[in-house]
Amino acid sequence: MTQLTKQQRTEFEAAAFRTLVEHLRRRTDVQNIDLMNLGGFCRNCLSNWYQDAANEAGVELSKSEAREIVYGMPYGEWKDRYQTEASDEQKAAFARSHPDH
Rank of each mutant, 00 (worst) to 15 (best):
M1H: 06
M1T: 06
T2N: 11
Q3L: 13
L4I: 05
L4N: 07
L4S: 11
T5D: 05
R9M: 09
R9W: 05
T10W: 04
E11G: 07
E11T: 15
E11K: 13
E11W: 12
F12S: 02
F12Q: 15
E13I: 14
A14M: 08
A14F: 09
A14R: 10
A15G: 07
A16V: 11
F17A: 15
F17S: 11
R18M: 10
R18W: 07
R18P: 04
V21E: 06
V21G: 05
E22H: 12
L24A: 02
L24C: 08
R25T: 00
T28N: 03
V30C: 07
Q31I: 01
Q31W: 05
Q31L: 13
N32Q: 08
D34Q: 15
L38C: 11
G39V: 02
G40H: 08
C42M: 01
N44K: 10
N44M: 03
L46A: 03
S47F: 03
S47N: 01
A54H: 13
A54T: 03
A54F: 07
E56D: 14
V59D: 07
V59R: 09
L61F: 02
L61P: 02
L61D: 01
S62I: 00
S64V: 08
A66R: 01
I69G: 00
I69A: 08
I69E: 09
V70D: 02
V70A: 04
V70L: 06
P74N: 09
G76V: 05
K79A: 15
K79D: 09
R81K: 15
R81D: 02
Q83H: 03
T84V: 12
E85D: 14
E85Y: 02
S87W: 09
D88A: 15
E89S: 10
F94A: 11
R96G: 00
R96D: 14
H101D: 12
